[in-house]
Amino acid sequence: MRVTKANVTRVCAVCERTLLMGEQTLRYSPDGHEFVDVCTLCSEIALDSGWVREGHAVSPALQQHPRRRRQKTLWQALLGARDEEAEPVVSEPILRRLSDDELTLVEAADLFNQSDFRRTVAGVAKSLGEPKVSIVPLAGVNAETVLTFAWDITWYQYRVTPDAAQPVRIADRGHDLDEVEPAYAQWNARFDETGRLVPELATV
């Protein structure tokens, strides 16, 4: 009987590129517990993001188990960022009363507020005013959520994947509000005066 090796597809946890067979990779831990493959081209990005290379000491800041809705990004925690910079959009007592669908909106908003893209939207808002905002969860196993920020002359769209190495990434942008698909034009959130994305929740 002929025995063949099973093909195992590996991807870089940073750039999400499919790795070639035999390609050299490095192992890093984003959270101090599990290790992931990182291609050599993305090694510096992993280090800059505070990931720990396999075989090196893990910082105490990484050894704490992350909560489902993280108060800070890993990089912010390592730099000692103040809590108010990533203040959650909903307080703990209210969280207990939310449905699963509402929790999805809150988690997506918290992750966006912890990302650098928050500054991008805040900068545009200073010039063009408060945007229309929607948070739309996608069906499927990846638990992705689409965030849309729209003004009369421009719009930005982001995708949030909580379990990804980079949970928030830009997905699309344009100049005409009519370009935004109707499914993503459900204006169910706001970008408040403090520069935070806040979902509109019936429970709150």
Rank of each mutant, 00 (worst) to 15 (best):
F112E: 02
L177K: 11
S134F: 04
L19K: 01
R53V: 15
E193N: 07
R173H: 10
Y156V: 01
Q166F: 14
S43F: 06
R173A: 14
A185L: 07
V14F: 03
V141Y: 05
V90I: 13
L26Y: 01
L62A: 13
L19F: 02
P182H: 06
K72E: 12
K126T: 09
P162G: 01
V180M: 09
E102W: 06
T9N: 08
R10V: 11
E87A: 13
T73N: 07
K5Y: 02
I45S: 04
S134A: 15
H33D: 09
D176G: 01
P199L: 15
E87Y: 04
R27T: 06
P182N: 13
R68S: 10
K126L: 10
P88C: 12
P88A: 11
G55Y: 11
L177R: 12
Q186G: 02
V204K: 02
V124Y: 03
C39W: 02
A139L: 15
A125D: 05
R196Q: 11
T161L: 15
L177A: 14
R68Y: 10
E92I: 06
K126P: 00
T18H: 06
E200M: 11
D100S: 08
D100Q: 09
A81K: 08
D110T: 04
L41D: 08
R69E: 11
E23L: 05
P66I: 07
E44L: 15
F35T: 09
Q76K: 01
A202S: 07
G32H: 02
S134H: 08
R67Y: 07
R190I: 12
